Simulated assay, not measured.
Amino acid sequence: MSSLTSGILASDELTHQFTSLTSSTNVRGIIAGISNEQLVPIATIPRRGTFEEDIPQLESLLKENEPAYIILRRRDSGPAPFICLTYVPDHAHVRSKMLFASTRNTFTRELGTEYFSESIFATTKAEVTVEGFKKHDAHVAKAAPLTEEEIALKGVKEAEAEASRGTTARASHVSGSVAFPVSDAALDALRRLPNNPNGLVQLMLDIQRETIELADESTSTAHDLITAIPNTAPRFSFFNFSHKYPGVPENPIVFIYTCPPSSKIKERMLYASSRSSVLAIAERDAGLTIAKKLESGDPDISAQQLAEEFQPKTEQKQAFQRPKRPGRK
């Protein structure tokens, strides 16, 4: 079973800067970091010439002991013109290393994986120099050509990115190629959900018609989600989780994306690529406020896992007991 954990989200400032970057070639890239559990911009990289001419700017912008995410425009036209570098220097604190490495896929997914042709991991400044890129390109060029099936599987892996890790993510940009139109029935069901405690709305893709359709609208307890959500096909599910914490009634909306491993490659690709557009429709057009976004391979989500998402465990500290003096009983 895939673990269900919360991820770090992109700040509005970062998404706005990235939107500007995608619409203009006047800036070479953005350097970003993590602050207060958000992905935030740190600096912009101005465009002064070619890609090779702009790379030396990174020397003064990167630090020997601080990780960073680097977005660079590698080409001016064509699909996926950007590359993403995760820079995690050896001298950084261990916690920072782990945080940046584990959030690497979330970073590109938050901004839209369709914009990135490559995701590169670097641990030294030498790897993000002109020579470093030449070595990287030479290594990639020597890679054995992929078969048609391997290319398809590679596309699925990139599109699903964090899906296999079960992390939270937020839709920042929606590529037009995967923003399928939604049916009125699906939209109406989403709008009714806030007024339906324990309500469950499941959406599916009609791959032939390229539309988002209502698969099912029902009521389910958290215990019954494992059977209410099918294990034979992918689903975008929205659950009105009715519970009390601590003793106060709450009804947060939870988004659950499930994609069984047995799903066809085309299904996995389209569902993973459509995830952002479905979330955008739910929040923008249906007016939903999504409290948690969870992902799993099979729909084996338990009530305990949901409870842990909204009711974090607190450590109970034992009272300090003064040791007895020697000789006393």
Rank of each mutant, 00 (worst) to 15 (best):
S117P: 03
L306M: 07
S237V: 01
N26A: 13
D90K: 15
S296H: 02
V27A: 13
A185F: 10
Q17H: 12
S96K: 15
S96H: 11
L61M: 14
K266M: 11
K293S: 13
A291R: 03
I42C: 10
S60C: 06
F238L: 13
S172I: 01
R47D: 05
A222C: 09
P246V: 07
K264S: 14
L62Q: 09
F236P: 07
K266A: 06
A233W: 10
D137P: 02
A138M: 11
S2R: 06
H93L: 15
P312Y: 02
Y87E: 01
S276G: 10
E295P: 01
R104S: 07
H243E: 05
P312A: 04
I120E: 03
E309C: 14
S262G: 03
D90W: 11
Q321H: 09
Q57E: 11
S274V: 06
G33Q: 04
T19Q: 08
F238A: 04
F320I: 06
A126Y: 05
P89R: 02
A233C: 10
A179H: 09
I83P: 04
V178N: 13
S172C: 11
E114L: 14
P67F: 00
D12M: 04
V94S: 13
D298E: 14
G297F: 12
S119H: 11
D76M: 10
L203P: 10
L214N: 12
D188L: 12
G297I: 02
A282R: 01
S262D: 04
P81W: 03
L61A: 14
R104V: 00
E64M: 05
P67R: 06
S23V: 01
P260K: 13
V128F: 06
G112F: 00
A10E: 04
I229H: 14
M1N: 08
M98L: 15
H139Y: 10
P323I: 08
T50N: 00
L14N: 05
T167Q: 02
S262T: 11
T44W: 02
I256T: 05
R95F: 08
K292R: 15
L294F: 02
A32P: 03
N26S: 15
T25A: 07
F238G: 07
T50K: 11
L200S: 05
N195I: 03
R47Y: 04
Y69Q: 02
N105A: 12
T15N: 11
L270T: 08
S277I: 00
Q57C: 13
E250S: 12
P299F: 05
T15I: 11
